[in-house]
Design a protein around this nucleic acid. Sequence first.
DNA 1: GAGTACTCCCTTACGTCGTAAGTCTTACGT
DNA 2: ACGTAAGACTTACGACGTAAGGGAGTACTC
Lengths: 242, 242
Amino acid sequence: MGPKASEVRTSAPRTPLTRERVLQAASDLADRDGLDALTMRALAESLGVEAMSIYYHLPNKNAILDGVVELTFTEIAAGVQRQGPAQGDAAGWAAAVRERILGARRVLLRHPWAPVVIDQRKSFSPAMVRHVDGIVGIMRGSGMSHDLIHHSLHAIGNRIYGYVQELSDDGQAPPPGQLEQMQSFAPHLAAMLADVAHVDPESTLGWCDDQTEFEFGLDLLLEGIERRRIAEAAARSAPATG
Amino acid sequence: MGPKASEVRTSAPRTPLTRERVLQAASDLADRDGLDALTMRALAESLGVEAMSIYYHLPNKNAILDGVVELTFTEIAAGVQRQGPAQGDAAGWAAAVRERILGARRVLLRHPWAPVVIDQRKSFSPAMVRHVDGIVGIMRGSGMSHDLIHHSLHAIGNRIYGYVQELSDDGQAPPPGQLEQMQSFAPHLAAMLADVAHVDPESTLGWCDDQTEFEFGLDLLLEGIERRRIAEAAARSAPATG
DNA sequence: GAGTACTCCCTTACGTCGTAAGTCTTACGT
DNA sequence: ACGTAAGACTTACGACGTAAGGGAGTACTC
């Protein structure tokens, strides 16, 4: 009567749980409802499953957090163009690094929780390592020393992943009343805010354009590093000044 | 029979709970046992009190987190020297800002939990505002436009408070086995780490000297901002190039 | 084809967290 | 002496991560 038992689902045709399905669901859930909503029970429900079932595929919640970050960086890796700067174009490293970083940022903007998780887990998964490795490779191609590269990585910091933990997250303008109150004990800041707030009222990107700010800071750093690179190269060709 | 009731403690000579005492205890507890140990119950116990008693003086835990950050910045404010750069020393702003930031860092090093709380609460308490205001004031004194100052603040980011959320927190050297494994899929990074790890093996500040890295990145930024300031000043005295 | 083992999901329950709601104690003004 | 109100305590709830073990289904052995 009917097809073989191995070909028919007796009642629920649910696809089996896997590590990948769990992580994808976790990422989706965090995208949709925010990081706080990513609980084991909520995640299980979104998978049509009980909370404890997840533990068969992943050891604990930290593994899930590490996993979704890994997933995100896989997504980032999919978007990079492979060729670096042309041979002999020593100054081209900065543009190449810039593009890699802005590419990462484009993905992170779709996963606003990722920076938070990266920070709190201090994760360092393979896909992240590869991302950094690619950038080190580009820098190395410009002749920079390992030492300078190392310092530069620290200077760029988390910006290498495409984000900065924004101070004051000033997405919305401060309420007018508060600004006057601020005037009494933080006059310089109040004056600046009053001035800057009207620079570009038509901007669709909010009161402060985060993308512009991000690129400004990034370019500041890249510029400085480039100057160090040139100084280093010059010192190599003229070893001692005295 | 003895002194007046108002002068003697009948049994327990415990000092009364206050907002300040609670916050100080919270700060101390986090210093000693880490941020995770800062729970309402543990905090209460360190005060010789029940958990719910705290709620008479502070509305909830977030208020405590905001409070300890505020406390930290009060501590920072106590350590700043008041005079800015000399009159007419436009380039002196960088040194003054640098000192303010490194001063904040000195305090934060005693409160390692503070950066974490600042990030997760995105706090912006009065003492923090004043700290930023002081820096804006110094920059303003050098003739920088509000616009440039604003961009610069974003670029400096949380470094303005004296910290960077370190990527990879490489306080200890990577285990030797892992480095070989890394070699296969992250050759550039592995090469760099192998090279840099031996640069200064006698350093007492750990494998990577965070203070050095912090100052490197800070100086990169200050340098870049100074160049922007000069460019801006030049553009002002020669409004149009064509 | 019966027994066995393994895979995968579920049930129950524990300890910890922040905190809502209400109660008791103490000191003071009258 | 007696309200009264400040300030601490008691109890309890719901959410969290997860330890421990149960049980259905499938597959493999002899």
